[in-house]
């Protein structure tokens, strides 16, 4: 899932300081699971900013709603009536949601309440970890199911570098060295010989370096 974290309340408040009526829009997708922008977080944020504005004698009329998903146009067409009279929408979705809103509500000020961090999953409740760098051409079959692109601090494809010690990465003693993990797993699987193959330089044009990407499935497209 996409993992995001809320920006400081004061920063969000600053973005809407000249608005009188604002819709705080949560998302029931990934950001609900990572406890950043679901229904509860949306209520807390709205409440906090309402209090702040009252204390500043600049009261804010804040309404809240949580969409099924903000990253699908179908789910935001239904909120037209909620958006009608507000000056701004504070989106608690990932960057995708914010952009869909901005696209649909052309005359509305749309601001992000979250910092979209990465795609990953949870380790324990309250802790999430990055797992995939969206490189566009997965090589997990060559690295024992552990992603060196994002989990190695240097995205090394022929690791580990000389900074790996006691299983940890040189950048931080709390970060596992991805290549130690890859080595351990390949050894356990009896596939160490695979690591002797020199991995060729990667085609980053399939990643973000090639510009915004599209994924197409012609067979499911509906002809108009």
């Amino acid at each position: 899932m996409i993992v995001a974290q809320q920006k400081p309340v004061s920063e969000i408040a600053q973005m809407i300081s000249d608005c009188k009526k604002v819709l705080f829009l949560g998302c029931a997708g990934c950001v609900t699971v990572c406890l950043a922008g679901g229904e509860k977080e949306t209520d807390v944020l709205a409440s906090a900013i309402r209090i702040k504005r009252t204390l500043e004698s600049n009261p804010l009329e804040a309404t809240t709603f949580t969409c099924t998903r903000q990253c699908d146009p179908e789910y935001i067409v239904g909120i037209d009536n909620l958006v009608k009279d507000v000056d701004a929408i504070v989106s608690l979705a990932c960057g995708v949601g914010v952009q869909y809103l901005a696209e649909r509500f052309k005359d509305k000020w749309v601001v992000p309440a979250l910092d979209t961090k990465f795609i990953g999953g949870s380790v324990v409740h309250g802790l999430w970890e990055e797992k995939c760098g969206l490189c566009g051409e997965c090589i997990l079959h060559r690295t024992g199911g552990i992603c060196p692109i994002i989990r190695c601090s240097k995205s090394i494809l022929n690791g580990p570098c000389g900074g790996s010690q006691h299983g940890k990465c040189e950048v931080d003693k709390d970060v596992d060295c991805a290549w130690q993990l890859i080595y351990d797993r390949m050894r356990a699987l009896g596939k160490l010989d695979k690591l002797m193959e020199i991995q060729p330089i990667k085609d980053w044009s399939k990643s973000r370096d090639g510009g915004p990407r599209k994924a197409i499935r012609e067979d499911v497209m509906i002809d108009e």
């Binding site: 022929n158 580990p160 299983g167 020199i198």
Partner: peptide, 14 residues
Amino acid sequence: FADPFEFRVDRLEK
């Protein structure tokens, strides 16, 4: 002196 020690010679060979 880095780890995994056993792989250091492999990597050198690589």
